[in-house]
């Protein structure tokens, strides 16, 4: 039974989120909103951690993939969902659910495709070049979106409005759970040791028969896919999106979560996503100091404790079988 523990845990989390989701109307809207933000940030941080932490590459453009996912999913919902729902037997919870799932997947796949496009040429390069390329990609996405026509499907500089609020507790935490499960099982398998080998020593990894490019691209595309899903969830939660919302400061926010949580530690990053999201919410009045404190924390930590602020917790860690 023990060897199936990860699957059982996954199913349990899915069931609990469905339960909470069904009684969400009785929950305080403010705290529910924070919880949903936490979930979205978990998806973003855990997926970025696959690239930056486990595989040792350094992407600074995660928000760009989130943007691609957000726009992809929203455009599908706004333009095509109305035609799709009658085919699924008319308006019903089931039909809107399926339409939303398709929208999310389209967003995720668009983001994954962009990840592949950006990753193929740039992952041959060392980590710090990748940082600049992804940062550049972030800017390219923003500039392209801002220069679209205001009447067109992308909405120009003002972005998109009136996206239906499909995102619920269940959707967010089901995808967050799948993301954590997916990344953790990928990395912990024998196949997945390849990601860590690439991070530790790329030349040695190549000499051990590991196709380093394929691993890096796999990590990058998977990371982009989940960022795209997170973008779709975000768009259908906020109901409006604009190109400015996905600028590189958003990417930095996700990077900060990953670094403070400890690069390469899934549990640490999940914890950091929870703590920092909640903290951000309560420190809203001190917005101007928040980034100063975070940036100082980054600098001091790299000197004193580069492995991350949160201790590596025993759960989800490599089992000493």
């Amino acid at each position: 039974m023990k060897r199936y523990a990860p699957q059982i845990a996954l199913i349990a989390v899915l069931a609990v989120s469905l339960g909470i989701s069904m009684m969400s109307s009785q929950l305080d809207a403010y705290y529910l909103d924070i919880a949903l933000n936490v979930g979205i940030n978990i998806i973003l941080a855990v997926s970025l951690n696959l690239v930056n932490g486990h595989t040792g590459q350094f992407s600074l453009g995660h928000a760009a993939f989130m943007a691609v996912g957000a726009y992809g999913a929203s455009i599908f919902t706004l333009e095509a969902a109305d035609q799709l729902i009658p085919m699924l037997g008319g308006p019903s919870t089931f039909a809107t659910g399926v339409a939303f799932l398709i929208a999310l997947l389209i967003g995720g796949l668009c983001a994954a495709f962009c990840g592949w496009l950006v990753g193929m040429p740039s992952l041959r390069l060392r980590g710090d070049y990748l940082a600049i390329v992804t940062l550049g990609f972030n800017e390219i996405v923003r500039v392209i979106l801002q220069n679209t026509s205001g009447d067109g499907p992308f909405g120009g500089p003002l972005g998109l409005k009136g996206i239906p609020a499909h995102t619920s507790f269940f959707w967010v935490f089901a995808i967050a759970a799948l993301c954590v499960y997916g990344v953790a099982s990928m990395v912990n398998s024998t196949y997945g040791r390849g990601f860590l080998a690439v991070r530790d020593d790329e030349i040695a990894a190549g000499s051990m028969g590991i196709n380093t490019t394929r691993y890096k691209v796999t990590a990058f595309v998977t990371g982009s896919f989940f960022a795209g899903l997170a973008g779709g969830l975000y768009a259908h939660l906020r109901t409006t999106i604009s190109p400015e919302g996905f600028n590189f400061l958003k990417s930095f926010d996700i990077v900060v979560i990953v670094i403070l949580g400890g690069m390469g530690s899934t549990a640490g990053v999940v914890l950091a996503a929870i703590v920092l999201t909640v903290l951000n919410e309560f420190l809203r009045d001190f917005e101007q100091y928040r980034m100063i404190v975070f940036s100082l924390l980054l600098i001091v930590m790299m000197i004193v404790r580069p492995q991350g602020l949160l201790p590596s917790l025993p759960f989800l860690k490599r089992k000493k079988a």
Partner: peptide
Amino acid sequence: RLFSSLSVFDNVRAAMM
């Protein structure tokens, strides 16, 4: 050029991939 942050066992495991 070992995979320095991996365990001894995982160094071997990575090479079997």
